[in-house]
Design a protein around this nucleic acid. Structure first.
Lengths: 120, 120
DNA sequence: ATAGGCTTTGAACCTAGGTTGAAGGTCAAG
DNA sequence: CTTGACCTTCAACCTAGGTTCAAAGCCTAT
């Protein structure tokens, strides 16, 4: 499949696919006689996987390391659980931090409301 | 006060102060005969305010707009409440999104654990 | 044969919030 | 008068994840 076909099928831009290839997130494509990239249809699923992983909070660097590991031998179930657990921790930390901010903002608003009451 | 004095007092780098000036987050400094920046001590409090606001999740752009408004007439209590409320909403949205990610990750982990059980 | 739609490459641009470095001017102490 | 600690400017660099552009080549239909 040509890059445009893959892009349409996966719902991503062609420039993004080339970008992924440059960055080593996906394997370099085979080339036709005219120099055009020629991708296996499997790439569509891989691109969807990347989007999913991004949606869970994985960076392209993290995704790339899994993909590279997948090149030699696919990632084990245990390994996947380990990666997901670590990400779970970092997401939990993010939530905790955001909740701290939320509480501080709420406290400030309450304080300002009171001050407004005092002035009235 | 010279830029280094301000920087030490506020706990920021001098390059950061110059950067803020370039970006219009703080007012351009008066200059001494030698060309050195000469800041009023008030800047220390302003720099601390900026750090606080950043800690609450405000971007420099947002902070700048408040500061600019503060140049003409200081921000009103009502206005502050309005800005904080909007930020509260966006922080709440961030938390909701992160919690969604957290749940999806947890679901995936559970699924993988089960699959591992089946294999055993 | 030519128009339009695809592809190629490389390089520059974008946001955010700075940091780092080079090349030079200034000031106070010893 | 020299050393060291300041200060000045401008410009480039950094992460992250791409997008956009320019100049060129290729392919298919009319």
């Amino acid at each position: 499949m040509k890059i445009g076909d893959i892009a349409r099928a996966a719902g991503v831009t062609t420039s993004r696919i080339r970008f992924y290839e440059r960055r080593g997130i996906i394997a370099p494509a085979a080339r036709g006689a005219n120099g055009y990239r020629d991708y296996p249809a499997d790439l569509i699923a891989i691109l969807r996987f990347i989007e999913q992983a991004q949606g869970l909070g994985f960076s392209l660097k993290e995704i790339a390391s899994v993909e590279v590991a997948g090149g030699a031998h696919p990632i084990s179930c245990d390994e996947a659980i380990r990666l997901l657990s670590r990400k779970l921790d970092s997401v939990a930390a993010l939530i905790a931090e955001a909740e701290g901010r939320k509480r501080r903002i709420e406290a400030l608003i309450a304080e300002l409301r009171e001050r407004r009451q005092d002035a009235a």
